[in-house]
Write a protein that binds this DNA or RNA. Sequence first.
DNA 1: CCGGATGTTCACCT
DNA 2: GAGGTGAACATCCG
Length: 257
Amino acid sequence: MPEMLEVEAYRVLLEPLVGATVARVVADDLVCGRPVGRCPIEGSTILGLRRTGKLLLVDTDHHVVGLHAGMTGSFLLDGVSAFDGLRYAPAVADRRFIRLSATMADGRLLELHDPRRLARVRIDPDESVLGPDASTISLADFADALGVGSTSPTPLKARLLDQHRIAGLGNLLVDELCFQAGVDPARPAAGLSPDEVRALRTQMRSTLRTLGRRGGSHTGILQDARVRGGTCPRCEVTLLRRTVGGRTTYSCPLHQR
DNA sequence: CCGGATGTTCACCT
DNA sequence: GAGGTGAACATCCG
């Protein structure tokens, strides 16, 4: 599930916890791994919730807690998921996969559900390793992140997925945005013209806004065609299926150049 | 049974 | 140093 749109939904879900004091944290090896000793978050008061890219940041009066949902993690507040009522609701009901429970002093309950155990919880994470958030990155920083003008052969998609350069985009969002922008994700990012860079950023913002409203990363126009032999929603030709930037990539051979 | 999946990290190559 | 590849994590789905 989680690319930045889903993580933003988690942030909104958990926002009401601002002001709450954490009474008790029960977790497996994700956080406060030692069986003996207290979790350093117990007794802390939540001051705010932020997000950079796919990282959800909980500011408390003692520490910052970094919550990363990995590939299959989602959060529940008093049993309610951020996706309840939405079209695409991950199965979050299986209690076997609750990896962390945090009880507030007022009785409210925050839980992390994560079948594949790819989620991570970090105390005082190093936020400086993340690039600017994709939804707010400036044009200059965007061009910088792509390495425009350099001689690097690295494909556009690899640059867009690189969380150190731009934070928040995942495999689905990148394919969707390259499709919408009509750009081949395998092209060297460094070779994009200034006009293309500007257009790509505009498309990125619009894709994030549209899919965010619609319900997440998997609500793009390309989503249903992301199968072997899938056809372009515009041209009807068979989509290209390749590995680009280490991830399975679908693109249209005709209108993405 | 096998392959692949929305993510990250690390070892190991070129 | 820069990139790429494959494995690992644990589970589900086609």
